[in-house]
Amino acid sequence: MKQLLYILFLFLISCGDTGTVADSSEDMAREIKLLRESLEKISALAEKMTEDYDSLKEGLIEGEEERTEDEEIEADEELNPDLIDDILEESGETK
């Protein structure tokens, strides 16, 4: 968010340097209004990006937790290869 404001600040400075900001007070008021609207849009966008990032991060953490839990269960229920062979043998199949 701070970075966005800083970019906007630089943009304003650069506009002033190149003389694109209107001279008359009426034009200046219109420019300020436009800039304010742009700033609001940027703020809303930044807010949404922050939310998206948070939810993405949360999702990633949940995914990691689930994987870890799955791995734990797999480790708990790890199958003994000899037992598998025995079961197949009992069912009438050879190893």
Binding site: I84, D85, L88, S91, G92, E93, T94
Partner: peptide
């Protein structure tokens, strides 16, 4: 695990 024997797959 899978074992194929003749026409039967276990």
């Amino acid at each position: 695990k899978e074992i194929k024997k003749d026409s039967v797959t276990t």
